[in-house]
Amino acid sequence: MKIMILLIGASFFIALIFLGAFIWAVRSGQYDDDYTPSVRILLDDADHGETKQQSN
């Protein structure tokens, strides 16, 4: 039964990663706008590499 400690610990750890990922997603504004990204993904830039200046 000692293995239970490990299992619970592992499941907890994974759950915490997901919680962290969710909080990060909210913080970075991914839930603020749920429409524009669906359009933006279609706007594939032909010259993506050459003039890429922004990163944020």
């Binding site: 603020d32 706008d33 429409y35 524009t36 359009v39 200046q53 922004q54 990163s55």
Partner: peptide, 8 residues
Amino acid sequence: LHSRVHFM
């Protein structure tokens, strides 16, 4: 530097 649209 950067511009981003919020369409709605």
